[in-house]
Amino acid sequence: MGVLSEQRLWVVSGKGGVGKSTVTAALALASARQGHRTLVCEINVQERISAFLERPEVGPEIRQLDPNLFAVNVRPEEAMREYALMIVRFERVYRTVFENRLVKYFLRFIPSLQELVLLGKVLFHLQEKTADGRWKWDRIIMDAPATGHAITFLNVPQVILDTVPPGPMATQAERMRDLLTDPQTTAAILVTLPEEMPVNETVDLYRAMGRQLQIHPRAVVLNMYVGDRFGAGDLEQVPASLRDLVRDHMCREELSAKARARLEAELELPVIAVPRLFDRSIGRRTMETVAGHLSPLWEGSAS
């Protein structure tokens, strides 16, 4: 068994631009193909997963993309509505109170309420059951907000517990925190690039997850990895017109090797390298290739 096995919630985290959505889409495709009924949740962003799988854009309603594969774009307005309806129970009460301009305005100022309802919706789906008592979703894959935002986002239940007096919000927050911190339920996957800044941020995120968030990272994906190609002496042999090209590649090889070594040294996690891909357009085929590289995560050769 790989490092990702029984956990039903996979949280994919990393700085903007590192390929988080690509990894999310590839993981989702693999999970669905293994027969797990999978739901992908993107959080209040320009939705990308559907395009990667060559499907029409997904909105705030859950939509099926493939056999066993579903996706939803979780946005604050709809999430707030669903959350409020769970509490007030009646559509008419909801409309009278929550759709009031002044109330809407008021709610914007409650610290972390927006994050709470976004995360709340994801965790609601995690606990959904079918009529015969089984989990509605075998697996939920969450494309978490970019680092920095990710720590704030995942820490919301704790922040609310620390600041809001006991009441309905606090009760919700406690249940949410328990789900996120349960290692049997939740696994975080960190995504990064072989460059100095993204690696630094990943090390920070890893530490924050352990100390502050108590969320368990299981693996780090080193995306756009450039493997060894040129040797010592190659640079001297090429003519001037090709020197920058070769130097550039060697520089990336070195950055890749350094990033891997640093991640292996500082994070007690398997490091999965996904090579840089050169497909002209990013689509299903790309996702299948990426999923192939990620397979050690569930096949058990990751160490």
């Binding site: 109170v97 008021f106 309420l113």
Partner: peptide, 23 residues
């Protein structure tokens, strides 16, 4: 206030009161 009563179910009465004071 009916709205305030409903809202406080949502946020807790103390939170709401504190927010109103801030505003």
């Amino acid at each position: 206030s009916y709205a305030a009563k409903t809202l406080s179910k949502f946020t807790g009465a103390e939170t709401l009161q504190e927010l109103a004071g801030f505003m």
